[in-house]
């Protein structure tokens, strides 16, 4: 049983392509981290799932309901923390939760929910117009949890939360997941999704460039580790072109940076440099998911699919 099934989903706004043939599957019960830099198309995807936007092409189902033709039935079964949640200024926190429950036509224990999301009790009867961003996010989360939904869609849930709030959010997501709730969670910050997600998909420029469990993604990045060599004077005309495992090379100031697809090739690179220049320092970094994501988030999009990323990517670490 799949919770979210997206097939060839595209969305164009005039000439701008926000989403380009996205294929994505989220299985029931998993916590899926939908990661990508701002403007990558994460919110567009979620807005398509919620029926706020209409697909230009492709299709998607949520809990088996088509996002275009069965939007209301779909929204009955999910809980949503929307992008840039904005409360009604003159309604109190309790009134918001009650409103959501009435629209869903389900019973609700407002006190238990507001308590669970950690909204200060003093704020429960206050109009939400005076709430801080963090309080608004907590209120939004309480509204999303109304009716114990089968699937939670959280669009940048941690924006506006302080570190303690983020930790509480992670605990709450874990509790929900332990309960069997599927969680689809978008973020532009890797460390957030890394801590709670079973699987991660990285979206860049409307395209899924990498997908897998944390371990799979880490394994993938091991074939792509950076090596920086600082020398006294950068020599002319050195060349690693004949070493197959060197994906790319660049020079900045006195540092030669290479990206190797096989860590074993690092020593050969160092030997070559040592022959033509005096090495002052060598920095060999382990492959990391952060490095991978940073490259994507910095806007250098790879063109590859799941297991090919990096293999032919031209970019180079500075």
């Amino acid at each position: 049983m799949t919770a979210i099934e997206i097939e060839g989903l595209s969305k164009h706004f005039g000439d701008v392509t926000a989403l380009d043939g996205l294929d994505l599957t989220v299985e029931t019960g998993e916590v899926y981290g939908f990661l990508g830099p701002n403007g990558a198309g994460k919110s567009t995807t979620i807005n398509l799932l919620l029926g706020f936007l209409k697909p230009s092409s492709g299709s998607a189902t949520v809990l088996g309901h088509d996002v275009v033709t069965e939007s209301r039935a779909l929204r009955q079964r999910i809980g949503v923390l929307p992008e840039a949640f904005s409360p009604y200024e003159r309604l109190t926190a309790r009134e918001h939760v009650r409103y959501a429950a009435d629209l869903k036509d389900v019973p609700v224990d407002t006190v238990a929910l507001l308590d669970r999301v950690g909204l200060d009790e003093a704020a429960w009867e206050r109009p939400a117009g005076g709430f801080s961003t963090g309080m608004e996010q907590r209120l939004a989360l309480a509204c999303a949890l109304v009716g114990d939904p089968d699937l939670l869609i959280l669009d940048e849930p941690s924006s506006g939360l302080d570190p303690r709030g983020m930790a509480e959010l992670r605990d709450l997501i874990r509790e929900e997941a332990a309960d069997g709730t599927t969680v689809f969670f978008s973020s532009h910050i890797l460390s957030e999704v890394e801590a709670v997600c079973d699987r991660i998909g990285i979206l860049v420029d409307g395209d899924l460039v990498a997908e897998g469990t944390i371990d799979e993604l880490r394994d993938g990045t091991e074939t792509h580790s950076p090596l920086d060599i600082r020398v006294d004077v950068v020599p002319e005309g050195f060349d690693f072109g004949d070493i197959e495992s060197v994906a790319s090379v660049s020079v900045e100031d006195n540092t030669i940076s290479a990206l190797v697809t096989d860590a074993g090739a690092k020593i050969e690179v160092i030997r070559r440099v040592d022959r033509v220049a005096e090495i002052q320092d060598i920095i060999s970094e382990p492959a990391s998911l952060e490095a991978l994501f940073d490259r994507y988030a910095n806007g250098e999009s790879g063109d590859g699919v799941t297991d090919e990323y990096g293999a032919e990517s031209p970019e180079v670490r500075a």
Binding site: F52, R72, R75, V80, P82, A84, F85
Partner: peptide
């Protein structure tokens, strides 16, 4: 304009 509509239509509201 204020985006409260996101809350309203995230529910199964027609």
């Amino acid at each position: 304009e204020s985006n409260t509509v996101a809350f309203l239509l995230s529910q199964p509201t027609s």
